[in-house]
Amino acid sequence: MKFELKNSLAPLSALSKIFEHPQTLCYPEVKSETVSGYRGFHINDLSTCIGCANCQDVCMNEAIDMIAIDKDKNPKNNSGCIPRIDYGRCCWCSLCTDVCPPDSLKLESECIWADDDANRFLYQPKDKPC
């Protein structure tokens, strides 16, 4: 193949980008738009959660513990238990939300949590209606 001068000069066209606005976002001043349906942290509507432990059964990482609730918020919650998720094990596959009979367990778009101790990553889903 013949090497042409054109092929050496054409890459210089990238220089035109110098005059363009950067494509990157200046985090944390500017954040990217949140997407509805993103698989982020868990939320659990305690007024509808029935404490059935379906989420615990389906979780292949054994990340979900059923723990006693402080104050009953749903009279139909027969066990008095609600899920808590070990974020050291969770893989955000959202199978737990798929099998939730009252659809109380959901994933929200919030997804940032920094901590210096890995053992603190036991997450109590926020009580939010979905």
């Binding site: 193949m1 042409e4 092929n7 050496s8 054409a10 890459p11």
Partner: peptide
């Protein structure tokens, strides 16, 4: 098309890859 100019037709890539 921009990648053609910048990469695939780039003489320095051709020299290295052929």
């Amino acid at each position: 098309d921009a990648y053609d100019r910048l990469f695939f037709d780039n003489a320095s890539f051709q020299k290295r890859a052929i």
